[in-house]
């Protein structure tokens, strides 16, 4: 390792490796650079450590505990209604998790941010590629398109659309090559998903509000 290697490595990492340390103990110039760098790093840390709002931790805990209680109450109420109406046999339908619908939720939880970061495709291109499955103009009538781009999904290619509707935001995954005999649905971690067949392929709709997802699922069929 030479001085240039040492300084480049130090600028990429806040710590010294063994190789870096071995060079530095033999080099007065790099020893001086390290001392100056340590001051810079301390200043950098102070700059990044923005003040934390007072009571943040308690607000986070209170809201989380409140939501957990609400979720339990909703679950018990739904369980009571289901048991009274149809017995244990139909109870499983409350948490039906079809595989493609569940994959759509997983995409939103784990892949959506990455897809958005990769950037959007031009509108004209979206109009062209979606013409046979779910016309882009129809999507635009349902809500405001915030993002549209192709993405790898479920072993094929889907078109990822982030759509702002008046009540919420929903994610669409248009899958021109995924033929589906019947609609699918799933719910997981506060997200709801419906996958509905299209003239060509299918589309998954994911959102945090079950009624909004159902409404958009109806609208995409035209």
């Amino acid at each position: 390792m030479n001085c240039l290697d040492y300084r480049r490595a130090l600028l990429g990492s806040s710590d010294e490796s063994a190789a870096m340390q071995a060079h530095r103990v033999e080099c007065a110039a790099c020893t001086a650079f390290l001392a100056e760098h340590a001051g810079f790093e301390a200043e950098l840390r102070r700059g990044l450590e923005v003040p934390i709002p007072g009571g943040l931790e308690q607000r986070l805990l209170d809201r989380g505990r409140g939501r957990a209680r609400t979720d339990r109450r909703r679950f018990l109420a739904a369980a009571g209604v289901a048991a009274a109406a149809a017995g244990v046999g139909l109870f499983a339908l409350l948490d039906r998790n079809d595989p493609l619908a569940l994959a759509c939720i997983r995409f939103v939880m784990l892949e959506e941010a990455k897809s958005i970061m990769m950037g959007a495709m031009p509108r004209a291109e979206a109009v062209r590629v979606l013409a046979d499955s779910l016309p882009f103009e129809r999507i635009e009538r349902i809500g405001q398109v915030r993002h549209v781009a192709p993405c790898p999904f479920n072993g094929g290619t889907a078109y990822h659309v982030v759509l702002a509707v008046p009540q919420d935001k929903v994610t669409l995954l248009v899958m021109p090559d995924a033929r589906l005999p019947a609609s699918e649905s799933a719910s997981y971690d506060g997200l709801y998903s419906r996958v509905v067949p299209l003239r060509k392929g299918s589309v998954g709709i994911v959102g945090a509000n079950r009624a909004v997802v159902a409404s958009v699922a109806g609208a995409v069929r035209g």
Binding site: E112, A113, G119, A120, V145, V162, K169
Partner: peptide, 19 residues
């Protein structure tokens, strides 16, 4: 947190090309 931030940003920001 990162995922949630970009979900919110996509809901609030206009459609933009890749940077």
């Amino acid at each position: 947190v990162r995922n949630e931030f970009y979900r919110q940003a996509a809901r609030d920001a206009p459609l933009a090309d890749a940077v």
